[in-house]
């Protein structure tokens, strides 16, 4: 499957989304990313039992942080997909890109 997805999405691989911490998401925003999303396994299908559920809660926490400082919480998202769903991966990349484009560039980048 040679599926194309927007080139502006930079993929950082982790063994499990349970490894993704709050600080990682914040760092991406701090360094100027317009948006960050976590692509995890389907709920209930985590190889480490609950990694993706933990990631979901951390994404929620970061959304709250952004809200508290007056930024759009939608710049951070959690998506779930199975590793066999290539087309879904590409679709999510497009969906998130569209959503972020609609929000415009991150004020962190444009104001500093």
């Amino acid at each position: 499957m040679r599926l194309s997805y927007p080139t502006n999405v930079k993929v950082i691989q982790v063994p499990c989304t349970g490894r993704v911490d709050i600080i990682h998401l914040l760092k991406a925003i701090e360094e100027g990313a317009d948006g960050v999303y976590v692509a995890g396994c389907l709920e209930g299908e985590c190889h480490y039992l609950a990694g993706n559920l933990k990631a979901k809660k951390r994404v929620k926490y970061v959304k709250k942080v952004l809200e508290e400082i007056g930024m759009e919480p939608d710049r951070v998202e959690m998506f779930n997909m199975s590793s066999s769903e290539g087309p879904r991966f590409a679709a999510v990349a497009r969906e998130m890109t569209e959503k972020i484009k609609a929000l415009g560039p991150s004020p962190v980048r444009s104001n500093s």
Binding site: I23, L26, E30, V65, I69, G70, M71, P107, V108, S112
Partner: peptide
């Protein structure tokens, strides 16, 4: 780390 980063994000956002 989280608080420091949050502060930096907020202040960068505000220029």
């Amino acid at each position: 780390g989280i608080l420091a980063s949050s502060i930096r994000i907020s202040r960068k956002k505000d220029g």
